[in-house]
Structures are given as structure tokens and as C-alpha cells.
Simulated assay, not measured.
Amino acid sequence: MKNLLFPRIFQPIGWIMFIPSLIVGALIYFSVLSFAGITETVINDLVIIGIALGALFIVCSKERIEDEMTKSIRLASLLNSIYAYVILLVTCTILINGADFLVFAVFNLVLLPILFVCNFRLEMRRYYKMFEDEEQN
């Protein structure tokens, strides 16, 4: 099966998009930043697009060591992220009502990519640590 990953250069580009978008999104959510009119719409759209594309570039770019284990980690991370996403979605749907649910629904737009990036990077860190420990022995 052909590997359709982005070149490794896309990973830092993804981080450059992901981190600032996540920070601006958090500042807007906690009302530290506020905009009005068309500016608000444009900023909100840019935050969502930045998080989504940044996450895509981060997890779908080739790794330093790209082997079968990396593919397995990528797939397992996606599966675990989907499980966590659905559990959180169902729980919040049951527990949150009214206008607060609309706030959660907006947050929910970027929840899966955020979970996927966090899960994948954590698992890759564990793999690299294990790989380095084996090289030292």
C-alpha cells in the first residue's frame, strides 16, 4: 500500500499554524480577546482552519523514523482519539443543555484534531524514548 504522507517539512509548518491558532482560540473562548462584526467571523474561521490544517500537517507528515511501528502508532492514536472524542461527545450531550451546549458544539469542531495530535505526539515520544534506550544498550 502506498504511503500518502506529507514530506517532513510540513511538520514544523503544522506546528506554526496549530499553536498560535490554539492560543488565539483559547483567548477568544475565555474572553481575553474579543472582536466584532466581520472581523470576529474571519478570526473565528482562521482559528478553526489553523487548528484543523495544523493538526493535519503535524500528524500526516513523515517522521524522523518512518517505519511500520510509526504507521501502527498513527493508526492506534487515531482510533484512541475517536474513542475519547465519542465518549466526551456523548457525555457532554447528556450533561450539557441550552446555550452552553452551543459553546461545546463550537469547541467540538476542533476537538478531534486536538485529541489526535496530543495522543499521537505522546505515543511517538514514548516510541522514541524506547528506541533511544535500545540503542544505548
Rank of each mutant, 00 (worst) to 15 (best):
M1T: 05
M1P: 06
L4T: 09
P7G: 01
F10S: 02
F10Q: 01
F10G: 00
W15L: 08
I16A: 15
M17I: 04
F18K: 01
F18T: 06
I19K: 00
P20S: 07
L22Q: 01
V24P: 00
L27A: 06
L27M: 11
Y29Q: 15
V32P: 12
V32E: 13
L33A: 09
L33F: 13
L33I: 12
T39R: 05
D45H: 08
V47C: 08
V47H: 02
L53F: 11
L56F: 04
I58Y: 05
C60E: 06
S61T: 02
K62L: 15
E63D: 15
R64Y: 09
E66W: 13
E68C: 10
M69E: 12
M69I: 13
M69G: 08
M69P: 05
S72M: 15
L78F: 15
L78P: 07
L79Y: 10
S81D: 02
V86S: 06
L88T: 14
T91E: 08
T93E: 05
I94D: 05
L95C: 10
N97G: 06
A99V: 14
D100A: 14
F101Y: 14
A105M: 11
A105G: 06
V106A: 03
V106M: 05
F107T: 12
F107Q: 13
V110F: 00
V110Y: 00
L111D: 12
I114V: 13
I114N: 13
L115G: 04
L115P: 04
V117M: 13
F120Q: 11
E123Y: 08
R125G: 04
R125H: 10
Y127R: 10
Y127T: 07
M130Q: 10
D133W: 03
